[in-house]
Simulated assay, not measured.
Amino acid sequence: MSEKGVMNEEQRKAPSRNEQVAALRPGYLADLADGLERFFEPRRTTCPWCGAQDLQTRLRTTDLLQHKPGRFVLDQCQACRHTFQNPRLSAEGLEFYYRDFYDGLGEKQLGNTFAGRTKMYEQRAASLLPYAADPKSWLDVGTGHGHFCEAARIVHPGTRFDGLDFTDGAELAERAGRVERGYRGSFPELAPGFAGQYDVVSMFHYLEHSTEPDRELRAAHEALRPGGHLLIEVPDPDSRYARLLGRWWLPWLQPQHLHFVPVGNLRQRLTDLGFTVVAEQHTEPHDPVDLLAGTWLALDAVAPRDNLPWLRSGPNALQRTLRGALLLAGVPALVAGTLLDRFAIRPLSHRLGVSNAYRLVARRD
């Protein structure tokens, strides 16, 4: 059989999305039958970054991407300005809310999204060039399916790239040849086995997912050789968009994002751990999608729900028609948001204070 024939055969065997949803629904409904309380830890009364007790609620929202049930709160410490999810997801909650986002039902869509961002990945890799032009070994923590490593080879062709992730994405990345080795598990727990092995450790939009960011930073220090470099990119909680767009600001990404660290806090913690910050960037890591994403989240929130396995039933014909009509009516707003994001605001993002992310390059001393 030809390669094309094999692909067609696989496509015929693959279940449709509605069939996947129907298969997943009993499991989700069983998980929800006992309520949501077990998905959350007790509420904190102190800041997880500095220990201060002066907390103020910054945001209340819901899951605007998957629309899984639950309400989520972000508190801000008035002493150090650290923003964090409170109450935080428990281990059971993390499993429930991550399920079918990066894998399973959502794997194909997210994989296609990440695969189409080659230029962004190359730009991230190039941010190291002024400080280490020819690293021999690189560990990408939170690698997902390894698309960054695949693109980074264009910039660093002589570098060995390994990937680490707590999902099976790292193993998939190794099988696809995007990384030399794919490690699955917790970085702080695996770090002793990497001690002093890597010239570079990168954490691109990973730290905000971590339950304990300080442990992740210590793990990076352990895995790096002296003189090696750590690259960190995270959402910027001081972005004006965070205030202007409120719950429609995509980087809040509740309930997955647990911590939002102001740049000054992260610089100081890296210094305390024995790093020297050699670069701070705001314009370069800005992803020009804020208005487009905010418009989409608002439209999707008011439209009738799609067929989702955590809902007791799928939409009827009228609901599907209404959803399609509303999203179609929103196309002009989506186009306007895209044009403003990319051509009007992007060149001025840092000057306007709306950069949605920042990047630090730090050298282990």
Results as ranks from 00 to 15, higher is better:
residue 1 M to H: 14
residue 3 E to S: 14
residue 5 G to N: 15
residue 6 V to M: 13
residue 18 N to T: 13
residue 20 Q to W: 08
residue 22 A to L: 07
residue 25 R to F: 04
residue 25 R to I: 08
residue 28 Y to A: 01
residue 29 L to K: 07
residue 35 G to F: 13
residue 36 L to E: 08
residue 36 L to G: 07
residue 39 F to Q: 02
residue 40 F to L: 09
residue 47 C to P: 06
residue 57 T to E: 15
residue 63 D to T: 11
residue 66 Q to T: 13
residue 70 G to V: 09
residue 85 Q to W: 01
residue 89 L to N: 02
residue 92 E to S: 14
residue 103 D to T: 15
residue 107 E to Q: 13
residue 108 K to M: 12
residue 115 A to R: 02
residue 118 T to S: 13
residue 124 R to F: 11
residue 131 Y to N: 09
residue 131 Y to V: 04
residue 135 P to R: 10
residue 140 D to Y: 00
residue 143 T to K: 00
residue 146 G to I: 01
residue 146 G to D: 00
residue 158 G to V: 14
residue 159 T to W: 07
residue 187 F to T: 00
residue 193 G to I: 11
residue 202 S to R: 00
residue 206 Y to Q: 10
residue 216 E to C: 00
residue 217 L to F: 05
residue 226 P to C: 11
residue 227 G to P: 04
residue 247 R to G: 03
residue 251 P to H: 02
residue 253 L to Q: 11
residue 253 L to K: 04
residue 255 P to Q: 02
residue 266 L to N: 01
residue 273 L to W: 07
residue 284 E to Y: 06
residue 289 V to N: 10
residue 294 G to H: 01
residue 297 L to H: 05
residue 301 A to T: 15
residue 307 N to L: 05
residue 327 L to D: 10
residue 334 L to G: 10
residue 336 A to S: 11
residue 349 S to E: 14
residue 361 V to I: 15
residue 362 A to G: 07
